[in-house]
Design a protein around this nucleic acid. Sequence first.
DNA 1: GTCCAGATAGACCGATCATTCTACTTGAAG
DNA 2: CTTCAAGTAGAATGATCGGTCTATCTGGAC
Lengths: 188, 188
Amino acid sequence: MTRPSPGPRERLLTAGQHLFYARGVAVGVDALLKEAKVARRSLYEHFGGKDGLVAAVLHRAAEEDLAWYDAALAAEDEPRERLLGLFDRLDELIANDDFRGCRYFASDVALDDPDHPAHAETEAFRRRLRERLIRELEEMDHADPERAANQLHLLIEGTLVMGATQDERQPARAARDLAALVLGGGGA
Amino acid sequence: MTRPSPGPRERLLTAGQHLFYARGVAVGVDALLKEAKVARRSLYEHFGGKDGLVAAVLHRAAEEDLAWYDAALAAEDEPRERLLGLFDRLDELIANDDFRGCRYFASDVALDDPDHPAHAETEAFRRRLRERLIRELEEMDHADPERAANQLHLLIEGTLVMGATQDERQPARAARDLAALVLGGGGA
DNA sequence: GTCCAGATAGACCGATCATTCTACTTGAAG
DNA sequence: CTTCAAGTAGAATGATCGGTCTATCTGGAC
């Protein structure tokens, strides 16, 4: 009912989410319009330009990715198992053929203008991800949640980089073992 | 004596090393020529094109960076202290104002053509870096050098990403603490 | 002095880029 | 039936891109 075939705005967001990730934010407007099956004018009416679409796509992707993290964390009962299970989900994510690394870091690197609206979106994503890590660590009464969150965040980003550059080395597993050390207690 | 002012080839490499890092490999040829104070024709005579210069710059940067890693490792006596000291050097590196993350990962992300010669250079760099980590780990009789090298490599890449995106959080220190756990033994 | 390789300076080309614009279609409201 | 907003299709624009080309200059080798 609420989806009598998505409108141009929705199709542009979907196409951007796919192409900006698969081919980078430097992908041409023509390719976006073709994949979204949308008229050129619609892009500028809805998003003001390509930069606006990039920011909007990152905003939507952040919502979905954070929901993905929430779902991954909700899959276990104990906070410690939840955080460790996160790296099992990352392992599956990396194994996907279309995995290309961290969307947000790639956008930051590609857009050298520090005032580009995309940077605010990537920064917000990282802040919200860190909030979730701290929440979990506090819930398990970790001695130093801030420090541990920094370490877990570093392990996540490192896993994504290693997964994008050399996938046969099972980086998520290496990161999981390190995460277990960060969280203390049993090794598995 | 051996430097009666560097020729166009050398100036192009220097300019590329600077600009490809500071503004990304997507930087225009005109900017490169201007910074190198070199005629347009020289670029194509010496490197065949922009792609050739990108690959040549990555090759030279890899040599210098590996020398940097060697120097960092040579600063201490015990293999364990050497590897830990590496993260102290990374801490200083990140603190630099012009630090912009990992040059090789940024190049890989920016060049979506999988056949671009730059990818071979970045892959070679990572392989050689990993060889050094394994060498150190073997020298300190680590139980599982391969696995530990993967973990240390992941910590290094994670440190560079975190340093590029949020520098006030002292990622190198967090990584050093994790590295100490990887290496076993005393905590500091 | 002559010659020539190598460098410089800069016009030029075709392709591609993001953006703007005009003209036409569609579908629902009044 | 008319109206009007929203969408489509695609030409046109100006800028920028990497790459090619011509013309000129410079500094040794001979």
